[in-house]
């Protein structure tokens, strides 16, 4: 658990390594598995897969609509396609194919959004994928997964390979420490309580989970008991865990490396109808990011331990 170490001592992982090793492992025993890319072998770290299964790597070139459509066709032809590309292009460029070919058609295909959020930092808003969670959670029948660390990434990939339906998975490029405990098993719509608390609940997803844990430490020093929920799926949400948090703590703070209409909007829509609670949203709100590295941008938007702690104090009126 990351809380056992100080931030400076943590070993950070690129979740793409877990993604590709898991895919290769699955493909060894399941010849239905193919990868579909848009000249994104390198950026998807698919080199080991390309080397081991060259014939099962379908590279359509820089053509995202074709890529997602071909993925749907491969699924129709009995394959289990993992369509892997930079999340910004996979979602924005091919959104109608995601909506119709994957979700409306209910094909068993896995859309793998690489380097999501603001991972591309200085490359700017053209390459950021902060809209993906807000967009994709509105599409019926699509499971939207945002793993928090390598273990959860690997488990999400395994789950998606076996799930007969369309799935979107973010694979983080920004370094993250291990955050899920030994023996953890991913399931859609099941949140993980990483820290119990009674004053406020921080609901985080993906790369922000470790920041939420650090924020809870800061709050504890102020005498505020913060619960930390890791929410690995934006769709479906763990409604029971969220409703319990709304009942049992004094406010909810959502945290995401995305527009706050992703996880934040989803949680707000649930609570406002079922158990209204004071909320604050940490993430990016209605703006294109300025130039800066990913770590600078995370701090700039308050997607940081101190930013989350500030939001938690604010929601409690302290």
């Amino acid at each position: 658990m990351s809380t056992a170490t100080t931030p400076a001592e943590r070993v950070l992982h690129d979740c793409r390594d877990a993604w590709v090793s898991t895919l290769v492992e699955l493909a060894e025993t399941d010849d239905r598995i193919v990868a579909v890319v848009n000249d994104s072998v390198g950026s998807s770290k698919l080199g080991p897969f390309a080397e081991r299964f060259p014939e099962r790597l379908v590279n359509v070139g820089i053509a995202e609509q074709d890529m997602v459509g071909v993925g749907a066709g491969l699924a129709n032809g009995g394959k289990v396609p993992f369509v892997s590309a930079a999340a910004c292009f996979l979602t924005a460029r091919a959104m109608e194919q995601v909506k119709i070919d994957a979700a409306y058609s209910q094909h068993h295909m896995v859309l793998v959004g690489q380097s999501p959020g603001m991972a591309y930092g200085e490359l700017g808003p053209t390459h950021h994928s902060i809209e993906d969670l807000a967009w994709l959670r509105t599409i019926p029948g699509l499971t939207v997964i945002v793993p928090a660390d390598p273990t959860e990434t690997a488990q999400a990939i395994r789950w998606a390979a076996a799930h007969d339906g369309p799935v979107f998975i973010r694979v983080a490029r920004m370094g993250v420490p291990d955050v899920v405990p030994e023996g953890y098993e991913f399931a859609p719509g099941v949140a993980l309580t990483l820290r119990d608390g009674s004053d406020v609940t921080v609901v985080a997803t993906g790369t922000t989970v470790v920041r939420a844990l650090d924020a809870a430490e800061l709050l504890a020093a102020d005498g505020i008991s913060a619960r930390v929920l890791s929410m690995p799926t934006i769709k479906p949400l763990d409604e029971a865990a969220l409703l319990a948090a709304a009942r049992e703590t004094g406010g909810i703070v959502t945290v995401e490396e995305a527009l706050t209409s992703g996880l934040g909007g989803a949680v707000a829509e649930l609570l406002v109808t079922r158990h209204p609670a004071p909320m604050r949203f940490v993430g990016v709100s209605d703006t294109f990011a300025p130039t800066g590295s990913v770590s600078w941008l995370m701090d700039h938007f308050g997607i940081s331990a101190s930013g989350i702690a500030t939001a938690a104090r604010d929601v409690l009126g302290r």
């Binding site: 459509g69 749907a72 066709g73 491969l74 032809g77 070919d101 058609s105």
Partner: peptide
């Protein structure tokens, strides 16, 4: 019905995928 269609420009990429799967097999 093998694929849902309606928005134009979707069927041919899907057909390429089914043909690709057939070739692999």
């Amino acid at each position: 019905v093998e694929a849902s269609t309606g928005p134009l420009g979707h069927g041919l990429p899907i057909a390429v995928g089914t043909a690709f799967a057939g070739k692999l097999d």
